[in-house]
Amino acid sequence: MYRIAYKKDLNEQVTLMKIEAPLIAKKARPGQFIIFRIDEYGERVPLTIADTDPEAGTVTIIFQKVGLSTNLLGSMNAGDSILDFVGPLGAATDLDGIKKAAVIGGGVGCAIAYPTAKALYQAGAEVDMIAGFRSEDLVIIREEMEAASSRFFLCTDDGSAGRKGFVTDQLRELLEQGEQYDAVFAIGPVPMMKFVSLLTKEWGVRTIVSLNPIMIDGTGMCGGCRVTVGGQVKFACVDGPDFDGHQVDFDELMKRNGIYREQEQEENRCLDCRMQRLADELIRR
């Protein structure tokens, strides 16, 4: 059992939790993820490690409530426990030799981009952080991102906060101004990562994306997380989740992520009964 030590809703859709998992807190490096399972009936769901506190023995996760499992987790509170929490999984982000970088987050992807920005910034690199959201009420971890970057650029689709437009607009402007980056990190919805990669390819800037295929075991045992990179099959849970954005087949990833869409929609219809069952279970625990 892994106890939820702290919970905070960052906005209506996004929740931050600190989970007690001392061994993972000690070992995790930026770019790695965990897999959680709420109870005996739960699926195994991957989430990036947003932060750790090795002394307190906690691991921070920030997640968007998109479907059954993330909504269930979001319905739990500090003091409750989840059944399984395994990690750190995946390869850590390669930050070697990067002196100047643009780190781009889209939506909840900002939570995944943030540890990369923080690690680079703490290592003395110059970091331009570009964060994109649909609107002001969805903005999360703004202060944290500001504190982990040399310059912080906020974009919203509707212009309700920061500049109006997409993260790619901001990035294009910076590149046109002559900024020279050793690398661009882009983490967010698949279309965003795709368009950032197309842009940086034009400019010949190395680009690293963090992929989020559907996973089960996270140890390289099922191949469900396979993605095509540079024409080769890679298992995102062990070979990634970071890959060269210029080589990734994003369209294939988008299609594969949709495989259970219909079933998931049905599941969400019974979210209420599932939540009730979890609540009963928590009382029994």
Binding site: I216, C222, G223, G224, K255, G258, I259
Partner: peptide, 24 residues
């Protein structure tokens, strides 16, 4: 536990599983 694939066209389509994934 590391599954093999055939390396043929179409293996990345949705609906293609390794036996390990399916059985898991």
């Amino acid at each position: 536990g590391l599954p093999s694939f055939m390396g043929i066209e179409g293996e990345a389509l949705s609906g293609v599983y390794s036996a390990n994934e399916y059985l898991t």
